[in-house]
């Protein structure tokens, strides 16, 4: 059979391996399995970035009609990703630092790192600089839900915190207690990590 790349209705280009029937089965041979896992991780993170999705749950493979249908189901070959397969993919992504369990201490739901916290830190810092908000105290809400859509819109607070941590370590940000919780102030400091 011939397997080819496919563009989903949302415009995401799936690699040809996504049209290979055995790709939707958890492979037994360890070498083959790690190859398949790598491909899946790439597809999942790529799609998450394409659609700005941050959370992935094992349930997403159980039912249809969610954000992940386009990649967890391939109607053209009548295959779908099964929940226990997704669970194992999720755990291998966590092992490889491509995702983190959120909330912690469970294994059914993860936050996806389609950008590493360090990369988010750079994005955050340059956004603050370009919008002229250096040295002002901002709430987390002002960052993740700005009036004008930004690269940080709808960023989960957990990831935002990690990004701020990275900036704090290089003296480019400081968490400040304010009346209704926490705020953050950014400093120019060009030094990169």
């Amino acid at each position: 059979m011939s397997v080819a790349a496919h563009t989903t209705p949302s415009g995401y280009l799936l690699p040809s391996i996504h049209s290979a029937p055995p790709f939707f089965t958890k492979q037994i041979n360890p070498t083959t399995r790690s190859i398949a896992d790598d491909h899946w991780a790439r597809i999942i993170l790529g799609y998450a970035r394409h659609r700005r999705l941050f959370t992935l749950r094992v349930e997403d493979a159980e039912t249809s009609g969610n954000d992940w249908d386009e990649i967890f189901r391939n109607e053209r070959i009548n295959r779908r990703l099964l929940p226990d397969h997704l669970a194992s993919l999720i755990s291998s992504m966590v092992t490889n630092n491509l995702a983190v369990y959120e909330p912690p201490k469970q294994t059914r739901s993860v936050l996806l790192y389609w950008r590493r916290p360090e990369e988010w830190a750079d994005v955050l810092h340059s956004w603050v600089a370009s919008t002229g908000q250096m040295n002002t105290i901002m709430t987390f809400y002002e960052i993740t839900d700005p009036p004008v859509e930004s690269p940080l819109s709808s960023l989960p607070i957990v990831i935002l915190r990690k990004a701020i941590d990275v900036l704090s370590k290089s003296g480019r940000a400081q968490i400040i207690a304010i009346a209704d919780g926490e705020g953050v102030r950014f400093f120019p400091g060009g030094s990169k990590i």
């Binding site: 040809s16 790709f23 492979q27 295959r79």
Partner: peptide, 27 residues
Amino acid sequence: DGLCWIDEQDEESGVSYWIPSGMQWDE
């Protein structure tokens, strides 16, 4: 040998084996 991949969702036989070198890959 890792020469083939297993497919547990085969419509006809339940389980089938796929030899990737027998498939045509368009990329």
